[in-house]
């Protein structure tokens, strides 16, 4: 396959290269990064018959305009946008052949916050500590460690792709700017009043404008603590709901630090993290508690959905 590229004509609000993340280096303080909605990222790869480790473009709130200089196949999953290939509308969650010279233009965002553009053969970028994922704060991975800018050329492979059309239903996106996500109690749930988890349950938190890929600051009812102070800093994972002594709870997302010192009242379950990733600042998240068994069952159901699409016959 000869090398080709995507020329970034307009970058959109925040478009970055992501893969499943930079695992295995958190002991050295290296954040994992990766997609905010891993389900849609993986689905985009499956629709263009990529390996699971391939990188996609994560597109946030306002999409880019891109020019392709080689024939290839793309698929756009996650958030619904009006997208055009030259003057022809591009269906979501469907593999679409692209000819050299064609342009992909993102228009109005219809639903969800983050779209994933998969391209046959995967978006190319140097592999840094085992991953192509962009971590914005540390400037690591992706395209020069940063979000894409106008004039960037992102390498892709030419001539990749099966040619046949693949189509999937995709993630059921949040409607009306709110999502209900399930949480399991956190290791410091006993730092809060007994009813704090109940307070969290069924109450909507607004995602503050001061939210980003590292985490969502949540505006809502105060979560009364029975213990003051901070913890001795300890390892944390995506989905942890940290509660600083005063101030807004923070839902840790893809670009989170590797450790933190705030008590955690709960964790968003893995199966529902993609939904959280589809929320924008100003939108609302509602937590409902569940058991760990339910969390794993939900994740298996999600995975079955992905497996079904990977087994899907190509339709033409």
């Amino acid at each position: 396959m000869t090398p080709g590229s995507i020329l970034v004509l307009k970058p959109g609000l925040l478009t970055s290269i992501q893969d499943l993340g930079r695992w295995g280096h958190q002991a050295a303080g290296v954040p994992v990064a990766g997609p905010m909605d891993a389900f849609s990222h993986r689905l985009a790869n499956q629709l263009v018959a990529n390996a699971a480790g391939a990188a996609t473009l994560e597109i946030t709130l306002m999409g880019p305009e891109l020019a392709f200089d080689v024939d290839t196949t793309i698929a756009i999953t996650g958030a619904h946008f009006d997208v055009w290939c030259d003057d022809r509308p591009v269906p979501m969650a469907t593999s679409v052949p692209i000819a050299a010279g064609q342009r992909i233009r993102f228009g109005k965002r219809v639903q969800g916050a983050r779209a994933y553009l998969g391209v046959a053969g995967g978006v190319q970028a140097p592999v840094v500590l085992g991953s192509r994922a962009t971590h914005l704060v540390s400037g690591m991975g992706g395209h020069e460690g940063r979000a894409l800018a106008a004039g960037d050329r992102v390498p892709i492979l030419a001539g990749a792709g099966s040619g046949a059309t693949r189509k999937a239903a995709g993630l059921v996106l949040p409607t009306g700017g709110r999502a209900r996500v399930r949480v399991v109690p956190g290791p410091q749930a006993d730092w809060f009043h007994a009813d704090a988890l109940r307070t969290v349950s069924g109450v909507s938190f607004r995602i503050s404008p001061r939210s980003n890929r590292m985490g969502y600051r949540l505006e809502g009812p105060p979560l009364a603590r029975v213990r003051e102070g901070e913890l001795i800093s300890e390892p944390v994972g995506m989905g942890a709901i940290q509660v600083p002594g005063a101030g807004e709870p923070i839902l840790l997302m893809a670009d989170r630090q590797t450790a933190g010192g705030y008590p955690k009242i709960g964790h968003v379950i893995s199966a529902d993290l993609p939904l959280a990733g589809q929320l924008a600042p100003g939108e609302f998240v509602e937590f409902v508690t569940c058991t760990r068994q339910e969390a794993v069952a939900a994740l298996i159901a999600r995975e079955r959905q992905l497996l079904r699409y990977s087994a899907l016959r190509d339709v033409s």
Partner: peptide, 13 residues
Amino acid sequence: QDVVPGYCTLGVH
């Protein structure tokens, strides 16, 4: 996926 030592805790992802 990752084994991460803290001061007095160990995270196993």
